[in-house]
Simulated assay, not measured.
Amino acid sequence: MKTLLNRIYYDYLVPSQFDRYEELVRLASNAGYLQTSLRSFFSSIPLNGAGPQKVIVHRHDIDTDVCTAKKIFAIEKKLGIKSSYYFRISTLDFAFMREIEEYGSEASYHYEEIATFAKKHHIRDPAEIMKRMAEVRAEFVNNFTSIERRFGLKMTTVASHGDFANRRLRLSNTEILKDKELRDRCGIVCESYDKNLLKHFDIYISDSSRPAPQYYYPTSPFDAIGRHNKICFLTHPRQWETNWRENTKDNVIRFYEGLKW
């Protein structure tokens, strides 16, 4: 019941958090942090692991709400910072993605082929998914190359989406990217959960669907500034402003997929 009430609050009642996001970006800038994309940060890490002294990597996972993502992007452009935006197949917006890249930020793929494959074939056994991983990876390659072709730009990093099917299977979509040949064929240099990326952060913070004032996990990024030099901050635009149309649509689709699976 508590989880359901939290979901209702964040989907339909949460007030706009844009002022808080702008406050965070200004605070970090004034404290001397470089605020950048995952791609830029990863490419800046030399072999000795030095990189920028103070940095926040902003990662936005566009699960449902492109409209809200555009508002976050407008704030970032106004304040002159860069970030990464990862789009699911259901949220692809190629015009917006090109605008992100033209500005100097990053737009790429928020993939979920294990969850999609499991729901499509009514598979609830993770062992069965592993047996058919070659098929799952083939679907990933097809989706990735199709998106890249329509996008017209190279994507070099990707981010796994965490679907309800992944939680029930206890199997992450990151399993797909454990194939080096697949990475080389697609030209993927980094996955957002790669150990050789995460080891360069002092702390990894995500926004949270917990009730106010617990908006973040494991701590507030406001508290992290000044305490930690290298911060990764993951956000989901749907949790920063209520968009009842998109949230209702997503909830209906999720309910239907759960019943059908």
Rank of each mutant, 00 (worst) to 15 (best):
R88M: 15
I129G: 06
Q17G: 11
D93I: 03
R245I: 15
S220I: 12
I75L: 08
V141I: 14
S220M: 10
E181L: 13
D223F: 09
Q35S: 00
L259R: 11
K180V: 02
R254G: 14
F201Q: 08
F87P: 03
I176S: 07
S220E: 04
R124Q: 00
I81Q: 08
I75Y: 00
V136E: 03
K78V: 03
I114D: 09
A69Q: 10
L24T: 01
H122N: 15
E112S: 09
G32A: 12
A118F: 03
K120R: 11
L234I: 15
Y86V: 07
Y217T: 08
R124K: 11
F42M: 02
Y111M: 04
A138S: 04
H236S: 04
R170F: 07
F73E: 03
K131N: 01
S108W: 06
L182E: 04
L234T: 14
S29A: 13
Y256S: 06
F96E: 02
N247E: 14
F94R: 09
R98P: 03
E241C: 07
G162H: 08
Q35N: 06
Y86G: 07
K178V: 07
E139D: 10
P211Q: 11
K70I: 05
T36D: 11
N247F: 07
K71H: 09
P52K: 12
S208Y: 02
A165G: 10
N173F: 01
Y21A: 01
F144P: 02
Y85T: 04
D125Q: 02
E22N: 06
R238A: 12
I75K: 02
H110M: 05
Y193M: 09
L79S: 00
A28M: 08
T64L: 10
V158Q: 07
A127R: 14
E22F: 02
M155G: 00
V66H: 13
F233Y: 14
T3E: 10
W240R: 04
S44M: 11
N143C: 15
K260L: 15
M155C: 09
L79Y: 10
K178G: 10
S172Q: 02
R7E: 10
K70N: 03
L92E: 15
F18H: 08
R238F: 13
A74E: 14
R98I: 10
Y10F: 13
K77A: 08
I231M: 07
F255L: 14
Y109R: 00
N247C: 13
P126I: 09
Y10N: 12
L13C: 15
T64S: 13
S160T: 05
L38D: 05
E191P: 03
D125W: 06
K70G: 12
E102N: 15
E191L: 00
N229L: 01
L197S: 06
G258R: 14
R149Q: 12
D125E: 12
W261S: 13
Y217A: 00
R254H: 14
R245W: 15
I8H: 00
E23I: 05
S209E: 06
E106P: 06
G187A: 07
L47C: 11
